[in-house]
Design a binder for these strands. Sequence first.
DNA 1: ATTTATTAATACCTTAAAAGTATTGAGATG
DNA 2: CATCTCAATACTTTTAAGGTATTAATAAAT
Lengths: 306, 306
Amino acid sequence: MDLRKLRYFKVVADEKHIGRAAKVLHISQPPLTRQIQQLEEELGVTLFSRNPKGMELTDAGVLLREEVRNIFSLIEQATERTQKAGQGRLGRMDIAIFGSGIMGDIPKMLLFFKERYPEVNIVLHTMGKGEQIKALRQKRISVGFNRLLAPLADISSELVSMEKLRLAISTKHPMASQDHIPFEKIREFPLVMYPTAGRPNFIDKTIRLCQLAGFTPDISQEVGDAVTGVALVASGFGACLVPESATVLSIPGVVYKPLSDEPDEAEVDLSCIYRNDDESPLLKAFLETLKEFRTIKDNRSLDELC
Amino acid sequence: MDLRKLRYFKVVADEKHIGRAAKVLHISQPPLTRQIQQLEEELGVTLFSRNPKGMELTDAGVLLREEVRNIFSLIEQATERTQKAGQGRLGRMDIAIFGSGIMGDIPKMLLFFKERYPEVNIVLHTMGKGEQIKALRQKRISVGFNRLLAPLADISSELVSMEKLRLAISTKHPMASQDHIPFEKIREFPLVMYPTAGRPNFIDKTIRLCQLAGFTPDISQEVGDAVTGVALVASGFGACLVPESATVLSIPGVVYKPLSDEPDEAEVDLSCIYRNDDESPLLKAFLETLKEFRTIKDNRSLDELC
DNA sequence: ATTTATTAATACCTTAAAAGTATTGAGATG
DNA sequence: CATCTCAATACTTTTAAGGTATTAATAAAT
C-alpha cells in the first residue's frame, strides 16, 4: 500500500473524472489511470465503475474513501504531534522539587512554563538533593530544583533566583518589635537549622556566614526542612534562618525579621539542575523559559523600584 | 509523507540498529540510513539519537512510533474492509418486500443470507409492485420481492419458490369439515380478492384459472392484501384464495383448505427482482445465496419425502 | 448511418527516486 | 595505537513513476 495511490484515489473519487483529477494533481492522465488500476489490482477490488462520461465510485470505493479520509487525518495528526514533540511543545516532563520548594519562585516559574507550553505535562516529584542527582542520572527526572549545589561533571545548573535571608523568631522575644536585626545578634539565639542531609547544605552555609561575621553560631537543633524549623521556633526553640520565600509560611507566634549588616554572601541561590548530555527539546524549552522568567522577574522588580 | 519511510522507521525503532533493521527489511544499510534521514528532514525533527552502539529513539521518536502503529492498523483495517465490501461481504443492502411477505420464505431466505453475510446490513422496506420497480430504477433499493411479475427490459427476476393455493373459508361453512375442496367448487363462494394495485396481479391470475376450469368467479370484494382478505372471511365475507405461506396466519373462524382437481398453473411464484445493470458484489452474493437457499430447500423437501 | 467529441486505456519513452556496492569517518574497546 | 562497530557518504544500477502519442469505446450530433 502506498499513500500516493490513496491520495490519487481520493482526488479521482472527488472529481469522478480521471482527466480532471490529473489536472488537479498536476500530472498527466495516463499515469493516474495506471495508479488507480494498480490500487484496484492490489486490493483485488473494483473501486470505480467506468462510464463513458467519467467514473463513479462502487460501494467498496465509497467505503474506501471514508477510510482514506481517516488515514490522512491520522497521518496529519501524527506529523503535527511529532513536530510539536520535536520542538519541546508536547510531552511529559518529570521535575523534582525539595520540600519547601512549593513556596516562592518554583510554582511561579512552573506556571509560567505551563502557560507557554500547555501541552507539556509536568509531573512533580518531591526529593532531596542527593536523590535528585541520582534520579537525574537514571533519567527518572529531567530537571531538579535545589539550593547550594556543588558542581558536578555530568550535571549542569542554572540559577533561578537569589534570596536574602530572614530570621524567624518568637513573637515573645524582646527583639520581635524591632524593624530588623543586626546579623551579629544571631550569636545570641539558639539556632534551629536544616536540612540534615545533602552536603553542602544550608547549615554549612550558615556556619560559614557566622564565621565571616566573627562568631560561631549556637546550633540548638537540626531538622529536616524549613517548615519544621519554623514550627519549632513557634514552640520557643530559639530562632531559625530562612530564605525570603519561606516567609509566606505564616505561623502564630513567629515573626520573620530582615537582617542588617550581614556579610555580602548572606544569600542563598535557587537553581535548577539537569544532565549535561540531555539534548531533549523539552529541556531546551524549559531552560529558555527559565531565562525568560528571570528577565521578566528582574524587569518587574525594576518597575517596582521606579 | 510516505508509508515506506514509516515502515522503515518502525523497524529501525524496534531494532535500534540500522544494520539489523536493513537485514529485517531485506535491503542494504545505506538506503535505509537515507530514508531515515529524509524522514527526519521532512518532519524537521530528530527521531533518533545516534550512539556508537546503535540508535535510540528520542521522545519525539517514541511518540511517532505510537502514531505509526495506529496508522498501520487503520490502513490494514481499511484494506480489509474494502476487500470485504468488494466481495459483497460488507455493506448495506436495501430490500423491498410486499405486505404479506413477512410470512413464508422471505424471512427464511433473509435469515439464511444474514447467517452467511453477518456484516451486511439488511434494511427492509415495505412497498407494492409498482413502487418497487420505481425504487429499483432510482437505486433506492437493490432487490425487491414480489409475485406475478411481468418481464421488463431493465429488470431481471429470479424465482424464490412456487406456492400452491389454498382456500380460506369460514369455520361455519358446511365444507369446513372436508379434507380438501375441489377447485370448481370455488364458483359457489363469493370471493374476497387482492391486491387492488399492480397489474398483472393475483386477481387476474385467479380469474384466468377459473376460466380454465370453466367458470367465472364471483368477486364479492377487492382488498389490498391477504391479511385483510382473510380477516374479511372470518367476518363471513365468503372465501379467499391465498398462497400456502399465508396459512401461517391463523385467525379464529377461518380454516385453510387444500384444493383438488385444480388446473396445472394453480400456483403462484415468489420472485425477487433486481436491476440488470447492477454489478454490485452485494447483489451477486445475494443472488448466489438465493440459489443455494433454493437447492437446500428442494433437498430438504426431498428428504422429507423419503 | 456516419461523423465527431469525450473518455479511459495502452504503448512506448523519459525522468526521478529508491536500492545496491564500495568506502569513509567517528567513537568505543582491547 | 590498532581494531572493531557503527552510521554516513559517494557513486552506480535498477525500479517505478511520469510524460507523449495513440487507440478503443461510447455517446451525441449531423
